[in-house]
């Protein structure tokens, strides 16, 4: 299925957000996630199913003012 990850189209077979994070190599990374504009806690990524056209955000610490 096609989803958006950080604004970019991605084809994935991942059924859950946790699987998607694993396929992108983020399992151990310091990241936070949201799906369709709503925060998804790391503990709930495995319980969060993905559907076509979902918009996933995966963010990390960055410089800020």
């Amino acid at each position: 299925m096609q989803i958006l990850v950080n604004g970019e189209p991605v084809a994935t077979d991942a059924c859950t957000l946790a699987e998607l994070c694993a396929t992108l190599g983020f399992t151990q990374a310091k990241v936070a996630t949201a799906v369709n504009g709503c925060f998804v806690a790391s503990a709930r990524r495995g319980l969060t199913p993905l559907a076509p056209k979902d918009e996933v955000e995966i963010v990390a610490p960055r410089q800020g003012g």
Binding site: N6, I58, G64
Partner: peptide
């Protein structure tokens, strides 16, 4: 210090290095 969060690229992983510095 103030920090932010931004989209993390699976390839670049800029945030991980920044966090180590902080």
């Amino acid at each position: 210090v103030t920090v932010s969060l931004r989209r993390e690229s699976a390839r670049m992983r800029a945030g991980q290095g920044f966090w180590e510095l902080i």
